[in-house]
Design a binder for these strands. Structure first.
Lengths: 337, 337
DNA sequence: TTGAAAGCGATACCAT
DNA sequence: ATGGTATCGCTTTCAA
């Protein structure tokens, strides 16, 4: 692979000059510019980005840390980051595969070694303290889907509790009085917060949620199916079901219909996230929109400001987001009684 | 950010020694190893990957070129690459956003500048010739979802024509005699090949496909809906529908049912790709499985061999893949007549 | 407008 | 076992 020296030697100029034309630098005569450009082409010269980064101390990548790409939710997140990265002609450096605090730490470290100055991180396992320490070391570090008081200005997060409340209010407004819930057994906070918001709103309006009508499962289609079976197995009736996420909700609907319940006429079902799936399901899913992609874009811009040493007030940009109710076909007015 | 020199100075040793302990190199006394390690920790030392790459001339990333991440198909592709990249403790470098030959070229060039030695590329716009030239320059370059005779050993592709044939055979076996088709107006080859395979198999069995019963649309849910409407608008009956991809198929089903046709009892529908969606739809979609993730993993391994200068026969690994029929609920035996 | 040379942060060879 | 130093490919003063 031809280097800048090769080009210089063959063109009969100094490396400094080659560097200038490679960077469209000022003060180069059109004549030598043409001459050098031709040689670069002939040699198939490609400037070495590593060498460049080393001397300029500048990064041209944006780092992203997520569990994996198969989950559409994280794919959207990565896509949001990618969108704004591209606007700044940067490339995505992906660190995936975290299941433990160790691997999350590792993922961030790898980006750091690459001297990635802008990083959007989805971390659920690392402690608040460790994240705080890291953000002192890395100015352009931003966390998404997590809220830490002490570094609120670098957290872009969704109000899960409020989401649960909105779901409850929607169901309440539709005249429902008997509720069930499907939650996820995994992850730390989110499922708990969503459930908690749902319950608190029910309580506030004088309703109650039978504890045996709360089932937990894997946060995917099958988890939803199994949880719905467990719900049915209790023999207790319910007309409204709040599910942790869309995939589980679709699984639950499938089980309910297999057991002779019509959605939404017999049972209304509401999901969470509003991933692609919810628009493709039948009936189309009523759900709470989690604007990940938008949030990811915001997070990236925020990281860029921070890396640029701009002051950011935690209220400046929309750090806290509230999910939006998307009414589709899986919920309807309760006519019973 | 502390450098190797800082560590050396403070630890009172040479940079060579620090380098040795940083790389777990041989011949370092436990004593100095401990001493240096402690200083590295204190200083929060993080070795500069760019400097490393420069001197070792080795890359620790795998490059991927795809249009974008929102399409589940490409997310799966990227995920496949990521899986094997991780096995080799490499990170993903993502170049997205190609719509034109220019941007595809640009995407590859960026990876090249980063001295990425392994690249998995999904290119539809660049010419065969240009790709051939590129692969002479980049040993570890592999193309996925594309077949070029002259560089067959670096192409991992799906036999789209055969997929169309399999779909036709399935429908034929189910006693169908009147067919319709929804294809995509975009992209170059794939839709054409799938359709061609479908038609040729129909022809071979003495059936025919009415040209007006072939509609084209955007390759997404809405495109499928619109195309199905156009199909219905012809007023001509059909009992079996072959659709370019799953998203369109689900859109088509929704339109058919809105117009009083039951799937599969009135009309059988078969999709293509077998993305996540097809398992979540209702009825669950019969489709042709496109093993992208598996193929992406194979492609990455192949790229690694090639980069390693290992000889590869184009028959060694499975370069050509045949889609597999996945029977689910959207197709059934035709009882009419 | 052009060139010489220092230096970015690491590795690895050659000494000791 | 440890240190000195040339080197990777490039950018960027400083001179000419």
């Amino acid at each position: 692979m031809a280097t800048i020296k090769d080009v210089a030697r063959i063109a009969g100029v100094s490396v400094a000059t080659v560097s200038r034309v490679a960077n469209n630098g000022p003060k180069v005569s059109q004549k030598t510019k043409d001459k050098v450009a031709k040689i670069m082409l002939d040699l198939g010269y490609s400037p070495n980005a590593n060498a460049r980064a080393l001397v300029t101390q500048k990064s041209t990548t944006v780092g992203v840390v997520i569990p994996d790409l198969t989950d559409p939710f994280f794919a959207s997140l990565a896509n949001g980051v990618d969108k704004v990265a591209r606007q700044e002609s940067r490339q995505l450096l992906l660190s995936t595969g975290m299941v433990s605090a160790d691997s999350e730490r590792q993922a961030i470290n790898l980006l750091l070694e690459r001297r990635c100055d802008i990083m959007v991180v989805h971390s659920k396992k690392l402690s608040d303290d460790e994240l705080i320490t890291l953000s002192q070391k890395i100015p352009g570090l931003v966390f998404i889907d997590r809220y830490i008081e002490a570094i609120a200005e670098r957290c872009i997060w969704l109000d899960n509790t409020e989401g649960g409340k909105i779901a409850a209010r929607h169901l309440l407004a539709l005249n429902h009085t008997s509720f069930a819930c499907i939650s996820s057994q995994y992850q730390i906070e989110d499922p708990g917060l969503r459930l908690q918001g749902f319950q608190s709103e029910l309580d506030a309006s004088g309703h109650q949620l039978d504890p045996t009508l709360i089932q937990y499962g894997e946060p995917d289609l099958q988890g939803g199916e199994v949880a719905a079976q467990n719900l049915l197995a209790t023999g207790k009736p319910f007309s409204a079901l709040f599910v942790y996420n869309d995939a589980m909700a679709i699984g639950a609907i499938s089980t309910l219909e297999d057991n002779g319940f019509k959605v939404p006429s017999d049972i209304s079902v509401i999901g969470f996230d509003d991933v692609l799936l919810s628009r493709y399901s039948n009936p189309k899913l009523t759900t709470l929109n989690y604007p990940v992609e938008k949030m990811a874009m915001l997070a990236t811009k925020l990281a860029m400001k921070l890396a640029n040493d701009e002051f950011v007030n935690s209220n400046d940009t929309h750090h806290k987001h509230v999910p939006r109710l998307v009414k589709r076909e899986s919920t309807s007015f309760n006519k019973s009684l």
